[in-house]
Nucleic acid binder design. Structure first.
Lengths: 344, 344
DNA sequence: CTGTTAGCGCTTTCAT
DNA sequence: ATGAAAGCGCTAACAG
C-alpha cells in the first residue's frame, strides 16, 4: 500500500541471506526436498514469509526444461462448444498444476501457424490443437520444426499423424438415423453436409453408412458450410417434392434449431409432423421448443482426455506413435423427435 | 522428422556465430532495431532461418521486466457467458500480441487466491478478475502483496478499489421494467434476487428503483441463488394470490427460460398472458420459444474494454486511481414479452 | 553501427 | 545436510 514502489522484487538470494543459508539450500526448501534439516527449512520458510517472497517460475523454467504451461488452440473461442472443451482441459490441468494459454485461430490456417509459433516462443510444454479448416502440410512441417508435443482434438488432419481425441461422430449420426428408423421414419434428410474437416466428413460417412444399412435413400442431403449455415433454398425445394422427407438429422444443434424455425415458417410442426435431431447437446438444445433431440458429443470429456494424453506425452516424450481416443457419443431423446413422452 | 532428438535448441549465440556477429547484434535484429545495417540484418535473418532458430521469450522475460502475458480469472470457465468475455479479451490481446492464461476460481475465494498466486508466479503482467462470490479482504491483501495490476470485470468488490469494467445492470433492469409498464403491465415480479455479489445487488437496486419510479408494488420479489436457481415454491405461491403478477423480470436468461417452462406447467402461456424478460442475451434466448426478450449485458464488449484498460495500466503503471467503465446494456424485445409483432 | 560485459533469478552438479 | 560455482538464453548499458 504505502511501501516504496520501485524496489526490486525479493529473490531467493534475499531469502537465503535472511535465513543465513545459501541460495541452493533455499531452493531445496522451495521444492520440498527431504534433504533439508527441519530446523533449516523452518528458518527459510519464515524468511520467505516475512519477506513476502514470490516464486519466479520464469527464472526456474530457464534451467529446468519445462514451464508447466500448455497451449490450447481453438477455432472459435467464444463458442459454448469450445468452452466446454476448455473446461475439460482446465479440470485435469488444475490437478497437475499446469496453466493453459489460449489462442484463437478463427479457423484460419495462417493465423493458426502464427498462434502456434507464439505459444512455442512462450515455451509451452505442448499444445492441444483443434486444427483449423484448410490446415495443410505447412502445419505438419511447422509442428515438426517446433518439436512440440501436440494432441489434436475434435478434428484431426491425417498428415499430422500423432495423437487425437475426438468423438465418434460417425456412430453418433448412425444412432440418430437408427432411432428415427425405429420410430417409423423412412425419408430422412441430412442437413448441413460439408467436407471441410474430419469431423464433418465423419458425419457424412455416418449418414451414408446408416442409410445404406437401413435401405433408405442415401441422396437426401442438404449442403452446409462453416459458421452454421445450410442451403435453405435446397431444403425448401426438398420439402415441396412429392416424396418429401419427414425427418432431419442435422450437422449440429445450431443448424437443427434453424431447421425447426424454418419448418414452422413452412407450416410444418417440428416434433409433430417432422422429426429433427441435432448434434452436440448445447445448452440451448434442452430449452428449445420443442426440446431438441440431439447427439451429445461430450466436448468436456474430450477436453479431459486430450489434456490427460498430452500430460502423458510431456512426461514421457517419444513413447508410442500416436494414440486415437474416441469418445462414444450418446443420443439424448427429447420432444423434437415426436416421442411426446420424453420430458425435458 | 529424422533428426537427432537430443540436440539442445539453437540459441541466439548460435545464430550470431553463424552470421559472424555478436549476440547483441543478433538480439537487435530480433527486435527490429533500426540500428542494424541492412546487410548485417540480412545475414542474421538468414542464419536464423537456416538454423531454425526459435525465440525464447522465457529468457528474454528474465531481463526485460514483462512477459507479454495476462491472467484471466473466471468463476465459471465453460459458461457461454464467460466465454464471450474471454473472446473480447482475446480480441484486443491478439492485436497487442499478448497471450492470456486462463484460470477458473469456480466462485471459491480460496481457489481464487491460489489461482492468482499461480498466475503471479508465472509473471503475468496483470490480471482481469471476475471476483468470486465471498471475496473478502484476504483478496485485497493478497493483491496488494503481489503488486499486480488488476482490473475487475463483470462484478467488483468495493474494498479492492481500482479499475472495474462491467455492465450497467441497474439501468438494464430499469429498462426492462419501463418497457413492461409501457405495455400496460402493473404487477411485475423480480425472479432470482440475491445479494451475493455486486452484479446481483445492482439488479436488485434497479428493480427497487424502477418500481418506485412507476408507482408499482416493489415487494414482488422471488429469491434466487448461485447456479441459476430460484425459489420455485415461492413463485408458485405468488401466482396463486388474488392479485398475481402478469410479468416477470428475471435475474438472467437461464432463470427466465426456467420461469417460462414453469409458467407452462402452471397452465400459463408465456408471451401471451404473462410477459417474461431475461438478462444477458445468451445464444439460447433467441432460439427459445417464445423467443426471450432480454437485456443484453454485452460481455464481449466488457472483455474488450477490460483488456484495453489493463493494457493501459501495464503500459503506464501508477497512473490514475481506479477507473470505472460501465457498458450500457440494451433491451432486446422478442416474443416472450407479448409484442407478437417482434420476429426472431 | 557493432562488440564487450554484466547480469535477470533460478537449478544443478559437485564438493564438503 | 549445506555451500560454491556454473550456466539456462536473453537484454541493456556502455564503449568504441
Amino acid at each position: 500500500m504505502s511501501e516504496c514502489n520501485t524496489r526490486r522484487p525479493v529473490s531467493l538470494l534475499d531469502v537465503a541471506k535472511a535465513a543465513g543459508v545459501s541460495r541452493a539450500t533455499a531452493s531445496l526448501v522451495l521444492r520440498q526436498s527431504p534433504l533439508v534439516a527441519d530446523k533449516t527449512r523452518l528458518r527459510v520458510v519464515e524468511a520467505m514469509q516475512s519477506l513476502g517472497y514470490i516464486y519466479n517460475r520464469g527464472a526456474a523454467n530457464l534451467r529446468r526444461n519445462r514451464t508447466g504451461t500448455i497451449g490450447l488452440v481453438l477455432n472459435n473461442i467464444g463458442s459454448p462448444f469450445y468452452s466446454a472443451l476448455m473446461a475439460g482441459v482446465d479440470e485435469v490441468n488444475e490437478d497437475g498444476s499446469v496453466v493453459t494459454l489460449v489462442a484463437n485461430s478463427v479457423d484460419s490456417p495462417d493465423r493458426q501457424i502464427r498462434q502456434i509459433r507464439r505459444l512455442r516462443e512462450h515455451n509451452v510444454d505442448g499444445i492441444i490443437l483443434c486444427p483449423a479448416i484448410g490446415s495443410d502440410e505447412t502445419l505438419a512441417v511447422e509442428l515438426a520444426r517446433l518439436d512440440l508435443p501436440c494432441v489434436q482434438a475434435l478434428r484431426h488432419v491425417e498428415l499430422l499423424g500423432g495423437d487425437y481425441v475426438g468423438a465418434d461422430y460417425r456412430s453418433g449420426i448412425e444412432k440418430a438415423v437408427r432411432h428415427l428408423v425405429g420410430s417409423g421414419h423412412r425419408r430422412i434428410v441430412f442437413v448441413g453436409a460439408m467436407a471441410l474437416h474430419s469431423a464433418a466428413r465423419e458425419r457424412n460417412e455416418g449418414f451414408r453408412h446408416a442409410t445404406g444399412l437401413h435401405g433408405l435413400e442415401g441422396g437426401l442431403v442438404v449442403a452446409g458450410g462453416p459458421d452454421n449455415v445450410y442451403d435453405v433454398a435446397a431444403f425448401d425445394r426438398l420439402l415441396k417434392t412429392r416424396n418429401s422427407p419427414d425427418a432431419a438429422v442435422c450437422y449440429n444443434d445450431v443448424i437443427a434449431l434453424n431447421v425447426m424455425n424454418r419448418l414452422r415458417s413452412l407450416g410444418r410442426q417440428p416434433g409433430r409432423d417432422f422429426a429433427v435431431i441435432g448434434m452436440d447437446n448445447l445448452p440451448q438444445a434442452a430449452g428449445a421448443f420443442p426440446a431438441l433431440t440431439t447427439i451429445d458429443t461430450r466436448p468436456h470429456e474430450v477436453g479431459r482426455k486430450a489434456a490427460a494424453l498430452l500430460q502423458k506425452r510431456i512426461a514421457q516424450p517419444g513413447l508410442a506413435n500416436g494414440e486415437h481416443i474416441i469418445v462414444p457419443p450418446s443420443l439424448i431423446v427429447r420432444q423434437s423427435c415426436g416421442e411426446t413422452s420424453a420430458a425435458a
